[in-house]
Design a protein around this nucleic acid. Structure first.
Lengths: 244, 244
DNA sequence: CGGCTGCGTTGATGTACATCAAGCTTGCGC
DNA sequence: GCGCAAGCTTGATGTACATCAACGCAGCCG
């Protein structure tokens, strides 16, 4: 599957879904700090595209010519080892920025999980705009700081938490991020499959599955239809997540 | 042990070791992008301090009033779970910046490993200076991007690599960073103890020790005095690290 | 000098999670 | 409606690494 990075028409990709002015996640994103005048300058260098589920946005090693902002849907970032072992380094939802860790070449592959709309910026043009609007630069720096803190949390999870604690942490994280997007924080939807969850948490699909059933048996969660999870005892889940 | 964050005189801490003009790691750090005039402005808000081994610089949860730059020695950053499990999220050597992931409060504890000299900046003053020198801001953003990419590598390591691959990756990383500082890339010194290595790689001290002896037996490394490691077959180590 | 302490190594055993292997459910094409 | 494929769950077994336990070897201090 060719990356759609620079391509305008290919399977599963549509262009110009909505203008920046009508962006549903503007207050969450990098755009939050810009006024209407400045947004229109940003709009000049952006292209909003729609991508179907399970499509590659860009691949590890590609020249990093673009950065992206997810406006709706779900995407994932991952790195591979030569024998196929995979680590998902992050899931992206509406409002999330993709490409902060970029240096010349993408250090990971980005793929959609569900149908997704994203804004695409040419990096060079965004750099120019950053020089013009220092608060844009400040904003991106602040986003990078936050993401760095999240990465450190994830290291603690991967290096030191048990399967049970990992799943509990994952559910809390999804719930909190849904709330930030203005959605209900319970029940929490799982747009990604078990394999993706496993590769995000450093587990196997079997262990993920078993741990869900175990949490269900102990009464702290309930598995609903459509891959949604009811956090019955949120407090207990939180304590499990923190390893108490 | 009280953090020395705001304290000028306490055990193991000395002040004003060298001026910025004579900074040995200036080309590696955030300061690389500033000219002499600008450096002198930076020097106004910086304090260079010397800290003995095994001292806490700041603790997780403290108000993040300062950021730091290590000029010599070794420090480590770590997060704890309530029951004492620990994840070291990074080691810092001369030239490394500390505090990029900071938001109001420190998200981790910083401790010296060996005797260390660090530059301390008041965050508020650095923020002001960033507004004045956009290239300073750009530089910090770029450092944050690089660190984010490193964090993703570490996630792959923690989530998907075997003990053998983790140790090999660790040695390669130390070697590359030594080279970047202008030091020899072989043999590589291990200023930290086995327990620190274990908590960085998500292992136990026993497994770290066994894995070192195993790598020694297979002839790719040799353990020298003073906790130094000779990378005999660098190529083999690289391949082990990448999981080939 | 001798005993103590901290750290690293090595050995014996245990276990959380991986691996291997079926079933089960759901959705889709024909 | 039937057959098939893909994904989830559950069970049996294996194993990499953790845990528990000695032991060796400096460095240090009395």
């Amino acid at each position: 599957m060719p990356p759609f990075d620079m391509v305008r028409s290919m399977t599963g990709v549509g262009v110009d879904v909505h203008p920046c002015g009508a962006c549903p996640v503007r207050p969450l994103t990098v755009c939050a700090v810009l006024d209407d005048e400045e947004i229109s300058r940003l709009a000049d260098i952006v292209q909003t595209v729609r991508v179907d589920a399970q499509h590659t946005i860009f691949s590890e090693g590609d020249p990093a010519t673009n950065v992206f902002n997810v406006t709706s849907g779900t995407a994932k970032l991952y790195k591979l080892l030569p024998d196929g072992r995979r680590q998902i380094t992050g899931f992206l939802f509406g409002g999330d920025f993709m490409g902060l860790s970029v240096n010349e070449r993408y250090a990971y592959t980005a793929e959609t999980v569900s149908a997704t709309t994203i804004c695409r910026f040419a990096r060079r043009k965004l750099d120019t705009l950053m020089d013009e609007f220092p608060k844009l630069q400040r904003r991106l720096f602040s986003l990078a700081s936050t993401e760095l803190a999240a990465a450190q949390d994830q290291m603690l999870l991967l290096g030191r938490k048990t399967a049970r604690e990992k799943i509990a942490s994952f559910l809390i994280m999804l719930s909190q991020r849904a709330a930030r997007r203005g959605q209900r924080d319970n029940p929490v939807g799982l747009p990604m499959g078990r394999a993706d969850i496993a590769d995000y948490l450093g587990l196997t699909t079997e262990t993920v599955s078993r741990t869900f059933t175990q949490l269900k048996s102990s009464g702290v969660i309930s598995l609903l239809e459509n891959n949604r999870v009811d956090l019955i005892d949120r407090n207990a889940i939180h304590e499990i997540a923190e390893g108490v």
